[in-house]
Design a protein around this nucleic acid. Structure first.
Lengths: 113, 113
DNA sequence: AAGGACCAGTCTGTATTACAGACCAGATAT
DNA sequence: ATATCTGGTCTGTAATACAGACTGGTCCTT
């Protein structure tokens, strides 16, 4: 019984953080997305989004490619293998937890009687 | 399209934080639970658990009752109305996000073409 | 009576963190 | 020339989670 909860309490904060969870989840639905799109999607400031992306890249969860389309800079990001695994796993854990909890209901009290 | 993601990026950190999400989710499956049970469940130290519970109580999401069963102190916590709403809503948002993302697949690229 | 364990904290210190906003630099449009 | 768009870096700040020390009461053992 306690297993999924111990896991939950130690969820990977790198993935769990709302902004990054949003980014990763969006990326899991496409091959790539560009900086501006992600910024509008998440409502983050440039600086903030940039540092979140850097962290995800350092963690080897995403790749970041800088192109010039014409002379305009363009930053494109996408999921790496590890990233896809990480997001999928994260969602699975969350869902597993929720399901497990549902099965308990109704329980009057938990703890020492 | 972007709506659920803007929400996600601004998820209530009070509820989203792993330890508290675990606590709240457990509580949503029972009428009450006691301190020790929650501690073992989450693996948190006493001090840490205590402060998480305090925050949840301040936010009016849970109640905390101190009993003495015999002469042993016993701390029992449970969800308040607001708490139940908060957890349910949170999970709904997460699930909605995931569902929305699934529907997108497959999308080659998101952003300026 | 003294030592220790159990319970549920409070408090302190530390390290991490998310975030806004300032600044930067190259290119384009006015 | 000035302003704007691109995608950053850097700095400062306020909040944070967390461990571990300490408190203080009750119980049990010796």
């Amino acid at each position: 019984m306690p297993e999924p909860f111990e896991e939950l309490a130690s969820l990977d904060r790198l993935v769990h953080e709302p902004a990054r969870l949003a980014i990763l989840t969006v990326l899991s639905a496409c091959e790539s997305a560009d900086f501006l799109f992600l910024q509008r999607l998440t409502g983050l400031t440039k600086g903030n989004l940039s540092s979140h992306l850097s962290r995800l890249e350092e963690a080897d969860l995403i790749w970041i490619r800088k192109e010039f389309s014409g002379k305009k800079p363009r930053t494109i990001v996408g999921l790496k293998e590890r990233g896809r695994k990480a997001v999928d796993q994260h969602w699975e854990r969350l869902e597993a937890l929720r399901e497990d909890t549902r099965k308990w209901r109704p329980v009057p009290n938990l703890g020492t009687p």
